[in-house]
Design a protein around this nucleic acid. Structure first.
Length: 273
DNA sequence: GCCGAATGCCCAA
DNA sequence: TGGGCCTTCGGCG
């Protein structure tokens, strides 16, 4: 589930639920016993998302770092189940609510230095109000790598995952294999704005719905109708074939008709011919 | 019940 | 570039 919108949604929800309160913490799975014991009974001061990373600030300077990876997931229930479902790495209990974390890539207490190092590796977070597109553009315009690879590189910009990269490139009409240094600035700007709006919508909707459904609220859009090209065999705009190939070790989807390979503007191309 | 894939990322070669 | 890690789920028998 986790692209940038998931983490920012969790940060908002968990801040509302936990901030200012003392939590009971334990690790039913046992793999985070020591950390959970240190957190148990302590008050949460704040919760923040940076790219796809979550940081929980506790009193006494303790900081919990969570990265969901591909499989990690939080579940919220009204009260703790006597027998946790699946492998629960960490459980937080506050009056009236229980949060269970399973399958994270990272769940660890970190020092301020480690936290700073993690954040320093990240490019501008599309979901931060002060994210500076110029930082990302400076990297992209000089790179020979494909834009579809650059979008997944969290040091270039952070928050985009495999679904949003496919959908963002589709909406802007860029072929994923266009080299960064072949992108025109206006295309980059449109891509940035598009991805940012998509992620913001994802935070609001609590899910990824990028294909237009003017009449329906996001929660009513069926699985399989939520994207233009991601996971699709046919483009949901033109009904043409969707190409499926591997790019940066992940499955990429692109519409052959809507995302022509040539990055140059049509006007220039015609006049050159 | 087993197998493969999945919205991520690190590391070794 | 490929394998490993973490877990869940759907498709197949």
């Amino acid at each position: 589930m986790p692209e940038g919108h998931t983490l920012h949604r969790l940060a908002l929800d968990h801040r509302a639920l936990l901030a200012g309160r003392a939590v009971e913490a334990c690790s039913p799975q046992g793999r985070f016993d020591e950390g959970a014991a240190l957190l148990d009974g302590r008050r949460v001061l704040g919760v923040e998302a940076h790219g796809k990373h979550l940081f929980y600030d506790f009193e006494d300077g303790l900081v919990l770092h969570v990265h969901l990876g591909l499989f990690g997931r939080f579940r919220k229930t009204a009260r703790p189940a006597p027998t946790p479902r699946g492998a629960v790495r960490l459980r937080f209990v506050v009056p009236g609510a229980c949060l269970e974390l399973s399958g994270p890539t990272a769940c660890a207490l970190v020092s301020d230095t480690e936290r700073a190092a993690l954040c320093a590796r990240l490019g501008p977070d599309l979901l931060h109000d002060d994210a500076d597109p110029a930082e990302a553009w400076a990297r992209i315009r000089k790179s020979k790598r494909a834009i579809g690879a650059l979008l997944l590189d969290q040091s270039v910009l952070s928050g985009v995952g495999n679904v949003y990269r496919a959908e963002g490139l589709f909406v802007v009409g860029l072929h994923p294999e266009t080299p960064g240094n072949a992108l025109r600035k206006p295309d980059f700007t449109r891509l940035w704005d598009t991805l940012r709006a998509m992620l913001q919508k994802g935070v609001r909707d609590r899910r990824i719905v990028t294909a237009a459904h003017p009449e329906k609220s996001a929660s009513r859009v069926r699985r399989g109708e939520r994207t233009w090209v991601y996971g699709q065999a046919h483009c949901r705009r033109c009904e043409g074939a969707v190409e499926r190939f591997t790019l940066a070790a992940r499955t990429m989807y692109a519409c052959a008709a809507c995302q022509p390979r040539d990055a140059k503007p049509v006007r220039t191309r015609r006049s050159a011919e």
